[in-house]
Design a binder for these strands. Structure first.
Lengths: 162, 162
DNA sequence: GAAAATAGTTATGGTAAATAAGCATTATCG
DNA sequence: CGATAATGCTTATTTACCATAACTATTTTC
């Protein structure tokens, strides 16, 4: 029994060799780690697109924001708050200093420590970054819904603890 | 009006200098990108802990799983499915070959392409990895609740699209 | 049959994170 | 008081990951 004149399928395009082959991910589809990584790369791309004109990396912006909301922190304080290694923090901060965004000052009470604060330029940069970033969050909210977005944040926060 | 003998606060422990200072994150607290990154690092650490005895990276395991569920894929197929650059895939695959987990064979129909399949050893490795990974997912489920976990996966999947 | 496109490889650069060692300063304790 | 330990920051180095460009071999297109 051949099917030739019966038109079984409309147009099986003779194996379109350019079409990417559909792939089964198996259990991987529900690996939280896998989904996290993919989503994170996607949002990261959105971040870089949204803040391109400022040239700030996510890490740099997070540091600026923490300093902005807690003037007088030491470098170690910022590192502890953001989960950054102190060794990696030094060059990051120097870049922010070189841009004229942040200032590092020896703490008189303990001359090993540096306290951090933002310049006016730094505060302006944070303000602009926040405005640009707002667009990204709005895009995310359109994608997830407002409740979806806040659910996500809450779940991610729990996940951080382990 | 001084308060000295009135015992205003029970015991302000004279500024415990070893205690990490509490830090306000400001709007950063609700940046989806920030929360994603922190959560991802946390789960990544859990992955490495859980699969240490196998010595498989998340990327390697994902490749093994995709091959396992779709024998005969080409390298480009796997790359497209997992969002890996073909250039970066080559050394990754060579490592899996060197371990005796995967085999690369020229496709006769198109001698430019290599089709991939797992060895018996490779399938065993995937099975063991899945068993170990199961513990991680269970830990995550304890942390988020079963419905929380599936909500998270759904939200992350949406987020991937943008 | 020549030119363009594709699969895979190689080489290279950038960024992020981890580790170890060093210096200056402060705290601890005999 | 003074030696030792601990702390804050820096430097250097390593590793891993992602991206780009250039190259070879093969196939497709016209």
């Amino acid at each position: 029994m051949r099917m030739r004149s019966t038109r079984a399928k409309p147009a099986p395009p003779a194996a379109d060799s350019t079409a990417p082959r559909p792939v089964h991910l198996g259990p991987l589809r529900e690996f939280v780690g896998y989904r996290l990584r993919r989503a994170q790369l996607s949002v990261l791309a959105g971040f870089e697109l949204a803040l391109r004109e400022l040239g700030l990396s996510p890490g740099q912006l997070s540091v600026l924001m923490v300093i902005a909301h807690n003037e007088g922190l030491t470098q170690s304080d910022v590192c502890a708050a953001l989960g950054i290694q102190r060794a990696n923090f030094t060059p990051l901060l120097h870049d922010l200093e070189a841009r004229g965004y942040a200032i590092r000052e020896v703490l008189p009470a303990d001359r090993r420590s540096n306290t951090l604060r933002l310049t006016l330029l730094g505060r302006e940069a944070v303000a602009r970054a926040l405005a640009l970033h707002e667009r990204l969050e709005k895009r995310i909210t359109r994608c997830l819904g407002a409740t979806g977005r806040s659910q996500l944040i809450e779940l991610l926060q729990k996940l951080e603890a382990l």
